[in-house]
Design a protein around this nucleic acid. Structure first.
Length: 418
RNA sequence: GUGGCUGUAGCUCAGUGGUAGAGCCCCGGAUUGUGAUUCCGGUUGUCGCGGGUUCGAUCCCCGUCAGCCACCCCA
């Protein structure tokens, strides 16, 4: 272990089982996005560093994998997709009918210390609707997120959508007389409400002229709060998804660019971790691309959701089934007589030509070993090629029953169209 | 960036101031073309790395790197 190379901190090798697990998540992401009528796009992994500092300020450079390229350009491995999306949407905004429903699955990089559910490299599903101001767009995204979780095997016992609306807080701040330039700071305080002691929060609120009691008062009346919460809930209720949604004005999300409704998918288990999050960002496309385009979107990373799948029996069962399917052979060709290897290879290729997943021994092996290999590789049936070729034998490995076949009728006997 | 815990075979771990073991895995075999169990045999370690104390360090001390967890942050 000490010798040789290992992965950089926070980076992962994906051995076949882990890769299959990742693909199960990817497949589900892609399937749901397609079901909701989203189209896939992709952006560069490397972008000008300015693209990120413009939106978030210079301090995020600490969290970027950034360097100077050979052309003296300041560049960064992408830490998120939204700025790239904003650029793309703005650059060709006249080419597309609105609204745009776009999704992407890609890898991202953040120079942070790794811990559970967070690495320096991860995959993220991004789903955005651009060019639509109606809360119906926000609701469509939330519905997609809920269906995504259900398709992975989670139920209302496992997760909730926490729904909030920043405009409730910006209205509140304006009425309380919080100066315009300190509203972001105010939102940060609200964001930390759950994690910090009440005294500390109160002390931070005081210079802004806001009382902790007033803040709690607004949260307590969250159901009645303004913004688009009511419309979103009604939309989701019409889809039979009301039970998944919980209004919680304590959610504001860390990002500065959110302008309206925001939401998080979080697990109900002991972790209470956010597995996905998003919201409305009506000003960002103008900031990046100088084009007015309202937008909302959300993202889900692969690390937390994969942890959660492994910890939740129903989701784990679906994953295991997907893993089994992904690696199982349809047929294993047993070469019972080594001098028939040439004929066996013909059988192998014929079966593969019919679309089957086929394995066979690359080198001479005992028949017992071959059946063992067939079993380990998940083959449903074995085709035995031996001295009696062109007569063959088909064995159902689960039933342990064997029947004779012929080269000419093999595909039909296997129930496969030639 | 800060702190706590950890680091011995491919994996899970035991162990001792006198240069190391178990189980699992893997590979081979147990009379010639059928999957199990069992049995037999076999491979592997600079004991994370560097330095210090010591006659001697895998063990004690310091540093470092890596991993896990928490904090900060979370696009």
């Amino acid at each position: 272990m000490a010798k040789g190379f290992q992965t950089l901190p926070g980076f992962r090798d994906f051995y076949p089982e882990e890769c299959a697990t990742r693909n199960h998540v990817f497949d589900t992401w892609r399937d749901l996005a397609h079901r909701y009528g989203f189209v896939e796009y992709e952006a560069p992994l490397l972008e000008p560093t300015d693209l990120y500092t413009r939106k978030s300020g210079d301090e995020i450079v600490k969290q970027l994998f950034c360097f100077t390229d050979k052309g003296e350009r300041e560049v960064s491995m992408r830490p998120e997709l939204t700025p790239s999306l904003a650029r793309m949407a703005a650059a060709r905004q006249r080419d597309f009918k609105k609204p745009l429903k776009w999704f992407s699955i890609g890898q991202f990089f953040r120079y942070e210390k790794q811990q559970k559910g967070r690495g320096r490299e991860f995959y993220q599903f991004n789903c955005d609707i651009l060019g639509e101001t109606s809360p119906a767009a926000d609701a469509e995204l939330i519905a997609l997120a809920i269906d995504l979780m259900r398709t992975l095997g989670f139920t209302e016992a496992d997760f909730r959508i926490r729904l909030s609306d920043r405009s409730a807080w910006t209205d509140f701040a304006r009425e309380a007389g919080v100066p315009e330039e300190r509203v972001t700071e105010f939102l940060q305080i609200i964001d930390k409400l759950e994690r910090e002691p009440a005294e500390k929060t109160a002390a931070k609120l005081e210079p802004l002229g806001v009382s902790l009691a007033a803040v709690h008062g607004l949260i307590a009346h969250g159901e009645a709060a303004g913004g688009s919460i009511g419309a979103i809930r009604a939309d989701l209720a019409a889809r039979g998804m009301a039970d998944f949604v919980q209004v919680d004005l304590g959610i504001v999300r860390g990002l500065a660019y959110y302008t309206g409704p925001v939401f998080e998918v979080f697990d109900i288990g002991k972790g209470m971790r956010a597995v996905a999050g998003g919201g409305r960002y009506d000003s960002l496309v103008r900031l990046i691309g100088d084009v007015d385009m309202p937008a909302c979107g959300f993202a889900m990373g692969d690390m937390v959701i994969t942890d959660l799948i492994r910890e939740t029996p129903a989701a784990k069962a679906r994953l295991d089934e997907a893993l089994r399917r992904s690696r199982a052979l349809d047929v294993y060709v047993v070469i019972a007589a080594e001098d028939r290897r040439a004929e066996a290879l013909g059988v192998v290729q014929a079966l593969r030509g019919a679309g089957l997943r086929v394995g066979y021994p690359l080198v001479e092996a005992k028949v017992g070993r071959q059946f063992q290999a067939a079993e380990e590789q998940g083959a449903a049936r074995a085709v035995i090629v031996g001295a009696e070729f062109p007569t063959l034998s088909i064995k159902d490995l689960a039933q342990r029953e064997e029947k004779a076949s012929q080269m000419e009728t093999l595909l039909a006997d296997l129930g496969v169209a030639g």
